[in-house]
């Protein structure tokens, strides 16, 4: 599981340092695909309707639907290829790195490691927290609708990762020998009624549809103020 989570962290960080809106959408797709793969690993037999629905949510809605919906509008608007989602300065980058370090420290506090299974749970919490904090950082530093939408979708993905991570957390009361059955048990416990999960996916689809509409009708962000030092960007 850990290589996948490290890959997820890379995908979370990379677009913040590269000024391309396409890469940001690609990163959303990457996040969805990695989460779908993790979800598949948790229940490789796809034994329940829940598992199929979760796969649909991660693969179709988060990996493909949301990025494609935003991509179509950006393309129709003939958006310039460059587009920062994080202000390109040392301050923002430091904050992004600090957010990741903070996340790992937070995970150490919240999930003390006594067994290999808990090590995975700790990494899960660290990466999901990093995804959440980086999403909030985007929202705090951007005023344009596109970047804000990417920020919200990153937060939504962070929550999905938290939910996936909950399935790997063994209960404190269970011994190491019980870990495997407990994991399966939790995966089913943690799920709510199927209808609620369907409703959750429907709400996400409607949110993405609304985002797409806003991106169509809202004016693009006002071009950045001309820097007195650097002059206008080419």
């Amino acid at each position: 599981m850990s290589p996948l989570l490290i890959g997820m962290l890379g995908i979370l960080l990379m677009p913040l340092f590269v000024a391309s809106w396409r890469l940001n959408l690609l990163a959303l797709t990457g996040q969805g695909l990695i989460m779908a793969w993790i979800g598949y690993q948790l229940d490789p037999f796809m034994s329940s309707a829940h598992a199929w629905l979760s796969l649909f949510d991660l693969l179709v809605v988060r990996s493909l639907g949301a990025p494609l919906a935003l991509y179509a509008v950006m393309r129709a608007h003939k958006a310039l290829p460059s587009g920062d989602v994080l202000p390109p300065n040392l301050m923002s980058w430091t904050m992004a790195i600090a957010a990741v370090l903070l996340s790992f420290r937070f995970a150490e506090m919240m999930v003390p490691v006594d067994s290999p299974l808990e090590s995975d749970a700790q990494t899960f919490v660290a990466v999901a927290t990093a995804a959440l904090l980086l999403g909030l950082l985007l929202l705090a530093t951007q005023t344009g609708p596109f970047s804000q939408m990417v920020g919200v979708l990153r937060i939504e993905n962070a929550i999905a990762l938290f939910e996936l991570g909950a399935a790997t957390q063994p209960p404190r009361s269970a011994g190491a020998a019980d870990a495997e059955p407990a994991l399966l048990e939790l995966a089913t416990h943690h799920g709510h009624a199927l209808s609620l999960t369907i409703a959750q996916t429907v709400i996400l689809v409607l949110t993405v549809w609304l985002f797409r509409w806003y991106l169509q009708v809202l004016p693009p962000p006002t071009s950045g103020k001309v820097s007195a030092v650097e002059g206008p960007r080419s």
């Binding site: 909030l136 919200v152 938290f162 939910e163 909950a166 209960p171 404190r172 009361s173 416990h189 943690h190």
Partner: peptide, 25 residues
């Protein structure tokens, strides 16, 4: 969206806390 996402995250954390205590989520 952000506010309700935080509330949802709170519910996920709550579920985790119940499981840690050995209760059914």
């Amino acid at each position: 969206s952000v506010g309700l996402a935080l509330a949802l995250l709170g519910m996920v954390s709550l579920g985790r806390s119940m499981e840690l205590d050995g209760h059914e989520a």
